[in-house]
């Protein structure tokens, strides 16, 4: 459980490490968003405010940055985030079959979270795995050369 009303010591330590590299605290705001997201899964309005306070910037200014980048989640996500590459090489190699497979297995579409809170499914621009298309990423792991029949086994490894 996170105490949403303060940043944790680890979060602050990690943010401060980034701040030290830059000429002004607010320049580290993207790093700070990442750090808090790492700890909390997503960046809630409360978290946003905490970070903004810590970096001496306004909440609006921070949210302006946060909402620009697609991998900062401003809405809750599942325990695991699936990023399915929908860019050109994966398109040619049939990512749509993978998408259908995921939809069937998880009963969710892009932008949705499975009812058990396990997975959030998002489309993602090119994962740089074009020579092994189609590909997807779950959390930190990349799965290249995907076939729809592998999906079940892959998904099962994520509790």
């Amino acid at each position: 459980m996170h105490i949403d009303s303060i940043l944790s010591e680890q979060e602050i330590a990690a943010i401060e490490k980034e701040v030290a590299k830059l000429p002004m605290p607010k320049a580290a705001c993207i790093e700070a968003l990442k750090i808090v997201q790492q700890h909390r899964g997503w960046v809630s309005d409360d978290s946003l405010q905490l970070i903004a306070q810590h970096l001496q910037m306004s909440t609006a200014e921070l949210d302006s940055v946060a909402t620009f980048y697609n991998l900062i989640f401003r809405k809750p996500v599942g325990r695991h985030v699936i990023l399915l590459c929908d860019s050109i090489s994966c398109y040619v190699m049939g990512y749509e079959k993978i998408y259908e497979g995921l939809q069937r297995q998880l009963q969710i579409g892009f932008g949705e979270t499975s009812p058990d809170g396990r997975f959030t499914l998002l489309p993602n621009a090119c994962l740089g795995t074009c020579d092994h298309a189609p590909a997807l990423m779950i959390d930190q792991d990349t799965y290249p050369d995907l076939k729809p029949e592998q999906l079940e086994a892959i998904l099962n490894t994520y509790p």
């Binding site: 320049a27 968003l33 940055v65 620009f68 980048y69 697609n70 991998l71 621009a125």
Partner: peptide, 25 residues
């Protein structure tokens, strides 16, 4: 090392600078 948080435009060199400054790219 700075890792981005998405957005193709970050590769454009001046947008990249804004991203590194903690701004919209």
């Amino acid at each position: 090392l700075h890792t981005g948080v998405g957005r193709y435009i970050c590769g454009e060199e001046t947008a990249l600078l804004n991203a590194l400054e903690g701004k919209r790219a």
